[in-house]
């Protein structure tokens, strides 16, 4: 049933742009793709989820329990849509909690969220993507940095190779030099992280 990617975050974080980059890269690599987006009301700083389906698929939405990867641009929203994933699937997460602007609410900490996701059996790869993107000069490039990170972990190989993704970043985003840099920076951080993990395992 194809390769199903869930993108979750807060309206305004560049989630639809991430999905467009993915879709464009899939097509450029000769694949088929469907992207179901949330528009309108849900964009105003609200919770946003976008479904990306790659391969021989017909329906636009990923049903609960059938997603292969979740890219979380914010931790609360990642946790909110994790039920779309197959049990045990990987999550690539921007290590950040944005408290919803509501009075009198309790907001779980980042550590608590990651711990709960891991205890539920998911594999969580997390990275401070906003901080890393700020270092490159534009915090908004957090979205492409996170795509690069997922690609560097090999989690987007079934959608498109890293070069195709980077090319797509350059096509989809105007004034894209930082965005492309952020993509490759995320990619390298992933490779470095996996090396460390490998060493630790040895």
């Amino acid at each position: 049933m194809g390769y199903n990617i869930v993108l979750a975050g807060v309206g305004g974080q560049g989630i639809i742009t991430s999905a467009r980059i993915l879709a464009d890269a899939v097509l450029a690599s000769g694949g088929n793709v469907l992207v179901a987006e949330t528009h309108g009301l849900s964009q105003r700083g609200g919770s946003v989820v976008v479904h990306v389906r790659v391969g021989d698929v017909e329906a636009p939405l990923i049903p609960p329990g059938m997603g292969d990867l979740l890219i979380g641009l914010e931790a609360i929203e990642a946790a909110r849509y994790v039920n779309l994933l197959k049990p045990g699937s990987p999550i690539t997460l921007n290590a950040e909690v944005q408290p919803p602007p509501l009075p009198k609410i309790t907001v779980p900490s980042l550590d608590k969220i990651i711990k709960a996701l891991r205890e539920a059996g998911y594999t969580v790869y997390s990275i401070p993507a906003t901080t890393e993107a700020s270092k490159l000069g534009d915090a908004r490039s957090m979205n492409t940095l996170l795509l690069g990170y997922a690609s560097g972990l090999g989690l987007l190989d079934q959608a498109a190779p890293p070069e195709a993704l980077a090319d797509s970043v350059a096509r989809v985003i105007r004034r894209s030099s930082i965005a492309v840099k952020a993509f490759w920076h995320g990619f390298k951080l992933a490779t470095a992280q996996s090396m460390t993990t490998l060493k630790r395992q040895r």
Binding site: P63, I76, E77, A79, R80, N83, P100
Partner: peptide, 20 residues
């Protein structure tokens, strides 16, 4: 044969859309 999704058992605050 539908899968049973696993919920992490977190109490998540809602995030309705808000005025920018």
């Amino acid at each position: 044969g539908l899968p049973s999704p696993v919920e992490p058992g977190l109490d998540l605050p809602p995030r309705p859309p808000a005025l920018c």
